[in-house]
Design a protein around this nucleic acid. Structure first.
Length: 280
RNA sequence: CUCGUAACAAGCUA
């Protein structure tokens, strides 16, 4: 059953659901009983493809087989609903799992925080975040990142910065995700100086910017018309052993077009193909 | 006390 679960999970993660389902049927046919993990993997697979109805069917099937859903089952469904902006339904599931004796964990909470932020209910997200402590759960770096991102997207950078300081006080270490979120937010707010300060700070802390980090900074620089600076940063990627991907190029090309440097844009465009990438 | 499943960051389009 574990071998099958791994296989099913592998195929689900690559979006090859059909084959995963075939393995599922095959295991059942051979008299091997799927367990919670098998079901969870399938449910997750369907959720990732936005096939919520199908996911619900699998859920019913597992209950029919007297397999009790566990924290992961509920969390997967909650996350999926949250991602689609259906926080209301997610909250119902959240309550239901507690009634059924499954205690939400850090992941469940983070999913709820994510969902609440997505629909702009920042206060409730913060409440959720605070209630983790009462539940005896650790407000870990991922939950911080999620809420920080929520504040940033909700144009509440100052609130995000408060959280950023708070996490330090708790002895937590910010990650590249944390910095990428904040750098992006400051760029969008036109505060590129502060963004660059964070950019330097993260490297002093031993964190390396990755493609996402470069992309938010490049986007910020391009949007305020600092094309030269953006190109310098872009060149510095090479020294960091990072190859630009299509997103990076599209940011730069967009920047060049905005600045009316169409020839430069074309050069960058040609570079995409030279690298064997496909423009989208 | 062996194994498998879930959460956070990036681009264009009045």
């Amino acid at each position: 059953a574990i071998v099958y679960s791994s296989l099913i999970n592998g195929f689900c993660s690559s979006g090859r659901l059909k084959e995963a389902v075939r393995f599922f049927d095959e295991m059942v046919g051979r008299g091997i009983s799927p367990c919670v993990v098998t079901y969870n993997s399938l449910i997750h697979g369907f959720c990732q493809l936005d096939l919520l109805k199908e996911a619900a069917r699998i859920f019913d099937k597992m209950v029919g087989q007297r397999i009790s859903p566990d924290v992961v089952t509920f969390t997967v469904l909650i996350y999926c609903l949250c991602k689609k902006g259906k926080v209301g339904e997610a909250s119902e599931l959240f309550e239901m799992m507690i009634r059924l004796g499954n205690q939400p964990n850090e992941v469940t909470y983070t999913s709820m925080i994510y969902g609440l932020c997505l629909v702009g209910r920042l206060d409730e997200a913060a409440e959720m975040f605070n209630s983790m402590v009462e539940r005896g759960l650790e407000q870990n770096i991922k939950s911080y990142n999620t809420l920080i991102n929520g504040y940033c997207k909700g144009r509440a950078i100052e609130g995000a910065m408060l959280l950023f300081r708070e996490l330090h006080e708790k002895g937590l270490k910010p990650t590249t995700f944390t910095y990428t979120t904040l750098i992006g937010a400051f760029c969008q707010a036109g505060r590129v100086k502060t963004a660059k300060k964070l950019w330097n700070e993260m490297q002093n802390c031993g964190l390396s910017p990755n493609l996402c980090t470069y992309s938010v900074l490049l986007d910020g620089l391009c949007k305020i018309g600092h094309i030269e600076e953006a190109m310098d940063v872009f060149k510095s990627m090479k020294t960091a052993d990072l190859e630009g991907n299509v997103e990076i190029f599209s940011i730069l090309i967009d920047g060049m077009c905005r600045a009316n440097k169409l020839e430069e844009a074309r050069k960058l465009f040609d570079e995409i193909s030279k690298k064997g990438m496909v423009p989208d």
